[in-house]
Structure formats: C-alpha cells, structure tokens
C-alpha cells in the first residue's frame, strides 16, 4: 500500500494549469507515475494528449527536464539521453541518481512509436516507458488505433450499413513487450492508484528497460461523464477487460483477481457511448465476452507456468 500522506508531502512534478479535459485519465496517469520516485526525473514525451496540453505556448506544466519529440521516437530520444547520462556518470561528471521516463499515448506506442520502443528495449537502456492507453487517437479527434477495442465506434469506424464500429480486436502490446525479454512489464489502471504507484516505484528501481501499459479513460472519446473516469476504469478491471498484472523477468503475476466477482463485460460497455450501438447486439457482446474470457484464462495459465 502506498502512503498517500507521505506522497502528498512531495512537490508535484507537474503543475496545474494544463489544458487536459476535466476528469482526464491521461492527466491522472502522468501525475501518478511521477509520484513513483523521489529522484530527479527526465521525461521524453511523444506527440499526444499529454504533450499538446501540457505545453501550450508560452506555458509549460513541467517542473522537470522534459523533451518533446515526434510521434514515433520517444523511446529513441530517451535512449540517447540515458546513454549520455551513463557516460557522464562513468566519467564522474554527474553523481546524482537520475530516473528516465518516456510517455506515449497508444497511438504513439502501439502504432507509430513501436519500432523505436522495440529498438530501445532490445538495446537494454535503463528507462521506464509508460503508455497511457486511451484506446484511440484522441488528441486529433478520436481516430482508431491498434489499441481500440472491438466494437468501439471512432471517427474512422463510423456506424454505417456494412460496418458498425471497429471490427478488429486490439493488439496485445503488453505481451509484445514481454516477448522482448525485458526485466519488467506491467499493466495497470488509474482506478487502482495503489497498484499504479507501486508498479511505478518498482519499475523505477529496476535496472534496464521497463514498460507499463496503463488504462486511461478519455471522457470525450469514450463518451463518458467527467466524473465517471474512475468508475469506467474500475469496471474495465473488474470485468477483466483490462486485467492488472506484471511480468518480472518473464514470470507472470496477476495483481488483481476478481475471482467469482468477475463482472460481465456488458457492465463496462454500457456506460460508454462508443459502444452504445452494440449494447443490444447479443452476437457482438458474446464475441467480446468470449475474447475476454479466453484472454483471462490464458493469463491465469501463464501465471501458473514456471519458466
């Protein structure tokens, strides 16, 4: 359990006055991840919601060194910074312990930035990559990404005669990162702040590349009320749509198992406008439920494996 009173004593590394929407999950993610370490932090930020709304000229919300780069290369940028730091530290020019973090949305991570992330993970730089996953290109007006779930309607998956929303399941980036055999990979959600901050702290302390995929409700894109971000993220976890787990040196561990209380996915879908067209479509709901059940069972099996 994290000690919130202790955390609240630290000065926040991101200041108020940013332009993220009221109730934005990305803003919560950014704040909470930065709470994970007491050391100085350097941030690289891929193009995305957090980047555009924390740095509306002539303002910045960052109180730490922050580098913006293009959509595709947050991981490459942070690799360079880490390498420079490693050299300076070896030469004794820097003594301080500094942590490095890259933030990217799902567009900048699942799609556009995947190659640079994969490269940085393979090279083994010492950094934490956080994907705040709001499941579409929200900052440019809600176009689909490869993180968008099956059935969701987006600007590029409108409701037509032939197709009703996205027809493909999202890709499993967390497992793709596990396949890089890096020391730490995890999935978390803003609804479980203990889980999120603990995972952030743990990741900051591990040497080598770390990747955390964090669910980030988007009020405008998901069609939810501003004060529902928490509730929807919690439902995602309780329905196992978004299971919380971590993989440390290849070993899977489920962080939260709802057990018999696992809710049907409909509970999660029905509170969001992006799924409103399929809520009475029994076939679509069944398909989504079956997919979730299978993934959940697979995850449980993986947890039992002794690699």
């Amino acid at each position: 359990m994290v000690n919130l009173k202790e955390l609240a004593k630290q000065e926040s590394k991101i200041s108020s006055g940013h332009r993220m929407c009221p109730g934005c999950g990305a803003a919560i993610n950014a704040r909470m991840f930065m709470m994970g370490t007491k050391h100085p932090v350097v941030v690289a930020n891929a193009t995305g919601c957090i980047e555009v709304s924390t740095t509306v000229y002539p303002y910045t919300s960052w109180k730490v060194p922050w580098i913006h780069n293009a959509f595709e290369n947050a991981a490459a940028t942070i690799s360079g910074v880490v390498s420079a730091y490693d050299v300076l530290k070896r030469k004794g020019k820097i003594k301080k312990e500094i942590k490095f973090i890259a933030f990217g949305g799902d567009g900048g991570t699942y799609d556009i930035g995947l190659q640079s992330l994969s490269g940085a993970a393979e090279r083994g730089h010492n950094f934490l990559y956080v994907c705040y996953n709001n499941e579409a290109y929200m900052n440019t007006g809600m176009q689909r990404s490869s993180a968008t779930p099956y059935g969701a309607s987006t600007k590029t998956d409108p409701l037509g005669n032939k197709r009703q929303g996205k027809q493909e399941f999202s890709k499993d980036l967390t497992k793709i990162m596990v396949a890089h055999n890096i020391p730490y990979v995890a999935q978390t959600s803003i609804s479980h702040y203990n889980d999120l901050i603990e995972k952030a702290t743990k990741a900051f302390e591990i040497k080598g590349p770390k990747f955390i995929n964090s669910l980030s409700p988007c009020t405008a894109g998901w069609g939810i009320k501003e004060n529902d971000s928490l509730k929807v993220a919690r439902l995602a976890v309780e329905t196992c749509f978004w299971p919380l787990y971590e993989v440390e040196n290849g070993k899977y561990k489920i962080s939260y198992d709802p057990g018999d209380k696992k809710k049907p996915v409909k509970e999660f879908l029905k509170v969001q406008k992006r799924f409103s067209h399929i809520i009475n479509d029994k076939k679509a709901i069944k398909k989504i439920q079956e997919n979730i059940d299978k993934n959940w069972q697979d995850l449980k099996k993986l947890e039992k494996c002794d690699f």
């Binding site: 108020s16 006055g17 924390t54 509306v56 000229y57 910045t60 109180k63």
Partner: peptide, 19 residues
C-alpha cells in the same frame, strides 16, 4: 528565441473558469 524559462509556469494559466 521564445524559450520558456520558468518551470511549471502554467500555474499562471488559471483553468478554474472551465468549471
């Protein structure tokens, strides 16, 4: 160069009026 020299100066941009 138009650089921003004050860290976290978005503190000067009040968002309370959105409420």
């Amino acid at each position: 160069g138009g650089i921003i020299i004050e860290p976290g100066n978005s503190k000067n941009y009040k968002t309370g009026s959105w409420r």
